[in-house]
Simulated assay, not measured.
Amino acid sequence: MTASPLPRLAVTLGEPAGIGPELVAELARTDLAADLIAIGDGELLQAAAHSRGLKLDLRDDDGRALERRERGQLRLIATPAAAPVVAGKLDRANAGYVLSTLARAADGCLAGEFDAVVTAPVQKSIINDAGIPFSGHTEYFALRAGAEVVMMLAAAELRVALATTHLPLSAVPAAITHDGLQATLRIVHADLQRKFGIARPRILVLGLNPHAGEGGHLGREEIDVITPALEQLRAEGLQLTGPLPADTAFLPGPLGRHDAVLAMYHDQGLPVLKALGFGQAVNITLGLPFIRTSVDHGTALDLAGRNLAEAGSLIAATRLALELVVKSRD
């Protein structure tokens, strides 16, 4: 009997001066049953492996199906950095290089060349300093794929999706709209079904204000926007609870009755999730026509090149991407 080809997972190295290349080198040591295809600078990847005392079997990707991957083996789509890389030292000259690796991964997924993409962390500030507008992986892949997307992080049994992502807190209330909230919840509902195999997803929706507005005394967004949007979606058959106060929604009782939580803004839901599972949490982009997962942390420039960075989140992200690919083939 002929063995089935391994799922092809593209893995981007992220910010070259950060911990991403080291984490990808560590990822190669796992026994995950996936064809791991690194997209980035091969010399940088080998140097990162050497700094951690790892032997890396790096081979050019020829696009052919792989039925078995040995520990330490990675295939490579070579994308040279534009300028020499020094661990921990950002360089605007490499901003375009970083985006070129993301573009290659996204385009390869859209063309069916890869089954999923897993991303190491990037440094948004240096890309913007180079004069390139960039607010994050999530928004970049959405634009590349022409899709409406939602950011969701998962750790253990907790999944937290976001109604807004990388916005100043002052801009959040205006960004919570009836149509936008409904679009977000439809994406979360659909991908919990399609990608996670949950037949009837149960979603807990947080309010925006303290005490979910306290009946309008602490804000009217719950009354004017959130509740009407939820009521209309419930009439369509979505199982939604809320809006609930964020300070009590994460207790075991409410969480145990739901498959995901929708937070209104970045720092409303993610601190709870990261407190419960930092280093093992996974960032998932919902709504894309392909599977994309990522780490739950940043570039950790202070740790780069010091053999101190933990690869747990990247390994968890790759494991989840693999599970979702396998599930999609069932």
Rank of each mutant, 00 (worst) to 15 (best):
A111E: 14
S125R: 13
L54E: 03
D60S: 12
F141M: 12
V86F: 12
P84Y: 12
F134R: 02
Q123C: 12
G131A: 02
V118I: 04
L66G: 11
A33T: 10
R104P: 00
A103E: 15
S135E: 14
V122S: 02
L76R: 09
L102F: 10
V98K: 07
L45P: 02
P80K: 12
H50E: 15
D107R: 14
R104F: 00
G53Y: 12
D60P: 08
V122A: 03
A130G: 05
E113C: 02
A78L: 04
I127E: 11
L32P: 07
S100L: 06
N94H: 06
C109K: 12
S125M: 09
V122P: 00
A95D: 10
G108S: 09
R59G: 00
D31S: 12
A78I: 00
S100V: 01
I127D: 10
Y140G: 00
A34N: 04
A38C: 02
T138N: 12
L102G: 04
L36Y: 03
L66I: 13
R104L: 13
P133S: 08
L45C: 05
A106K: 08
N94Q: 06
Y140T: 01
I127S: 07
A120K: 09
G72V: 07
A120Q: 11
R69F: 01
P84D: 11
L45H: 07
R71F: 04
D35M: 07
V86R: 15
D107E: 15
T138L: 07
L90D: 14
A33V: 02
D107M: 07
D57V: 02
Q73N: 06
I37M: 05
A95G: 11
I126A: 09
F141Y: 14
T101W: 08
A105C: 06
G40D: 13
N94R: 06
C109P: 09
E67W: 13
E70K: 10
C109T: 06
L32Q: 11
L76H: 07
Y140R: 04
Y97C: 00
N94C: 01
L110I: 11
N128C: 13
E70A: 14
G88A: 04
D107Y: 06
R75W: 05
G108I: 04
A111F: 01
A81S: 14
G63P: 05
D57I: 05
G63L: 05
A49S: 08
F134C: 01
Y140M: 03
I126G: 03
L58A: 03
T138H: 10
V86I: 15
D62H: 05
A83V: 07
A47W: 00
A48W: 14
A48H: 13
E113H: 10
A120D: 10
V98W: 08
A95T: 09
K124A: 14
I37V: 15
A48Y: 12
E113I: 03
L110N: 15
D115C: 02
D31G: 14
A103C: 00
A106D: 10
G136M: 02
D61A: 13
T119G: 06
Q123S: 15
A78Q: 15
G136W: 01
N94M: 01
A103H: 10
A116K: 13
L102R: 01
L76A: 07
G40T: 06
K89I: 08
L36Q: 04
D62P: 03
E43R: 12
V122H: 06
E139Q: 15
R59I: 02
V117E: 00
G42E: 09
A105D: 07
L32C: 04
L66Q: 15
L58T: 04
A95P: 02
A82E: 15
A78R: 12
G63F: 03
G88H: 09
